[in-house]
């Protein structure tokens, strides 16, 4: 009797495992998205606690410190306004020149601010969970970044939450270029990425590459996911090997993903338009 119940339980587990693992990727992603609702009360409590602690900190902050910060922000705002005015002229000129050359106009893709609410529990992936989903217009493969640089791409989308695959994760390979030399390459996880998640590898540089430490790596715009010229990181070491046709460089990422609390998602509908050179 007991043996039969063991066999029955094992049969259920194995059958369910096989069914779930053989689901088509979009169906599995939709199912995952729907199942995130199980955590809704817990995430709600977490948000409430964070708000409460934030309010407590706000009350504890001295007025003088707040005024100093306000003053600094007002000055930064003024500087940025001046820069925007200067760039507006260049923007108009750019639109006119693009029209003369029959180039597609670059769209102004809306950005949405998302809160980081969790990280991948597994030690073998680099991913975060954000509090925006398909209800907010998110779709897979939309780029995610912060002011410091590229964070990754939207990987799986649920109704109210999404998973973002971080740069350095096997699911997030980025086509990049070295700003100083214009050389293109592909950014992937390196042997040290598990140890230090800020270090990744830049592959496919030519054997006689002129790229060197301190050079800046930005997105190339090739491929259909990331728009061009988003900062990604800085080269820290170039591994020159004359016996091979390609050179690999170690790149320190501009963004420390372990300290991310908020990120921007580019909610664009037309990926090709987003990558217009």
């Amino acid at each position: 009797m007991r043996r039969r119940s063991y066999q029955f339980a094992a049969g259920i587990v194995l059958a369910l495992s096989l069914i779930l693992l053989s689901l088509p990727a979009p169906t599995a992603a939709r199912l995952k998205g729907a199942l995130t609702h199980s955590f809704a009360p817990l995430f709600g409590m977490q948000h409430g606690l964070q708000k409460l602690s934030g309010t407590a900190v706000d009350h504890a902050l001295p007025r003088a410190a707040l005024l100093r910060e306000l003053d600094a922000l007002a000055r930064t705002n003024q500087l940025l306004r001046i820069q925007v005015d200067q760039l507006r002229g260049a923007g108009v000129e750019n639109i006119r020149l693009r029209a003369q050359l029959n180039l597609k106009q670059r769209p102004n893709s809306p950005l949405k601010l998302a809160r980081v609410i969790g990280r991948d529990p597994a030690n073998w992936w680099r991913a975060i969970t954000i509090d925006l989903g398909s209800n907010d217009g998110l779709q897979p493969d939309q780029p995610v970044w912060v002011a410091a640089g590229l964070v990754g791409r939207v990987y799986q989308v649920g109704p109210n939450q999404s998973q973002v695959s971080l740069v350095g994760d096997p699911a997030c390979r980025v086509s990049v270029k070295v700003r100083e030399t214009g050389e293109n390459g592909i950014l992937t996880a390196g042997p040290f990425t598990t140890f230090d998640p800020k270090i990744v590898h830049l592959h496919h540089l030519s054997a006689d590459t002129e790229s060197a430490p301190e050079h800046t790596v930005v997105t190339s715009g090739l491929g259909e996911i990331f728009p061009p010229d988003i900062p990604v990181g800085t080269i820290v070491e170039v591994d020159r090997n004359l016996s091979t046709l390609q050179t690999t460089a170690r790149v320190k990422l501009a963004v420390d993903a372990s300290k991310l609390f908020e990120v921007w998602v580019m909610v664009a509908t037309d990926k090709r338009a987003m990558n217009t050179p």
Partner: peptide
């Protein structure tokens, strides 16, 4: 697996 990039239910068995 819902909160991870793992395939759905991979740790079940």
């Amino acid at each position: 697996s819902t909160l991870s990039a793992d395939p759905l239910g991979i740790a079940m068995a």
